[in-house]
Nucleic acid binder design. Structure first.
Lengths: 238, 238
DNA sequence: GCAAGCCCTGCGGGAACCCGCAAATTGCTG
DNA sequence: CAGCAATTTGCGGGTTCCCGCAGGGCTTGC
């Protein structure tokens, strides 16, 4: 059994190596990568390796790396080791995990024992292990009155990029009014309203982005991915 | 000579402790704090200590802690040890550093030697030490065509919070048109324009926030601070 | 004192945004 | 197939945004 560690912080990398050696004595090859790109390459040359990977890396994030790895070998087991439980990250991961693949999501603040259990559970027992705090945000997200649909989430990203209703409609293949309908339900679910009867206090569109950021529905990496996708689409269109 | 380490990640804390012991043999007391709040308390009970502190901490950030520490003892020497060179962080620090105080800003990715020099330079020689990458963003920020005024930066935060022109005007004591003037110069400096002659591609207001986030002029902690300030002002007003 | 430059301010209008209403479409169930 | 709910679309209007234009106060320098 082989394990590939992908983590750009040398201290955390060393800590992970120790944890893997301790939790998985049956592991006979431990490979280390210091970046997302290097991780993809090493995973390609060692296709049977299980992977434990940091989510927050520069410039190629763990999600970027995982996407290409899973595209090439969908059954690869990956344990994501993350600093944050932001919904944006959770959404990003669950969006790309292939059906049937075993994966995990544990926080860096978790105890050694938790990390140990996750390593054994995912790599040996082929089960999914997700930290409680994370599942918490998942479930909080699942209350229908508050949860954003995938469609609404897309629109939210679009307005966060600063697109107009019209260009969103063009991009998503919808009418102007449909985009506005989705916006209305976003405002509703995020609890944004004009407050007073008199002059408006807030710009709903801008406020939605602010609230989404403050609630960790959105974060910078998600925005960067959206920006890249939009630039791509926009170039392809011309 | 005493040194206080404020850092929430145990691994990084241990690394810092080693680095301090190695770089400053004349240090005879090494105190460790695992959070911003604890750091403030320990600094209060050991007023002569020099401080090396992580900027990114939860829930009380390094900037929050530094602000209260410097308010109580403006000559305290602080070395900020940060993951990022974001302009928003640099701006946040340089906004609160008291005149004449020695401080430093070094990246976690910097070499051991760099950290060693910074520790000795700030704590022993009373000089300011700022990592090249950071100064780089500072200087890039200083090109007049691109640099945002303090006034413009305030407005930028306000639109990032989702306020309307009208409420910004009320809050900042300006006329509606003045707010819009500042907005125009923000759009200009960020290089945002309507592009095509036909139907608008982007919502300038929203696009400005997106660009500012992508360029690291804004980040989440800055937004959170602004949100708190606004809520405070808004409550006081009623 | 005066000219030049800068910022603040008001006015006006075209475009975009927000939304209530109602008709058309889609999808699902019995 | 009929029926019902959810979604989509068009229309109309009130409000906000974006900005060109022009006038008034403020500092700089000659």
């Amino acid at each position: 059994m082989k394990v590939l560690i992908v983590e750009d912080d040398p201290l955390h990398r060393a800590y992970l190596a120790d944890a893997v050696r301790e939790a998985l004595p049956e592991c006979d090859a431990l490979i280390e990568a210091a970046s997302g790109a290097e991780g993809e390459a090493l995973s390609r040359s060692t296709p049977e390796a299980c992977i434990v990977m940091d989510l927050q890396m520069q410039p190629r994030t763990g999600i970027d790396a995982a996407r290409t790895i899973w595209r090439e070998r969908p059954m690869t087991r990956i344990l994501f080791w993350s600093n944050y439980a932001d919904e944006a990250y959770v959404r990003g991961v669950s969006r790309i995990v292939p059906p049937g693949a075993a994966y995990g999501y544990v926080l860096k603040s978790a105890s050694d024992e938790r990390l140990r259990l996750a390593l054994r559970g995912i790599f040996l027992e082929n089960q999914c292990v997700i930290d409680g705090e994370v599942r918490g945000t998942q479930q909080r997200g699942m209350v229908p009155a508050v949860a954003l649909t995938e469609a609404e989430y897309e629109i939210l990203l679009d307005i966060a990029l600063g697109l107009t209703d019209r260009s969103i409609a063009a991009r998503r293949g919808l009418s102007l009014r449909s985009v506005q309908n989705r916006l209305q339900s976003i405002y509703l679910k995020l609890g944004i309203h004009a407050e007073t009867a008199g002059p408006a206090e807030v710009n709903l569109r801008g406020r939605a982005v602010a609230v989404a950021l403050l609630r960790r529905l959105l974060n910078l990496p998600a925005l960067e991915r959206a920006e890249a996708e939009h630039a791509d689409w926009s170039a392809r269109r011309s």
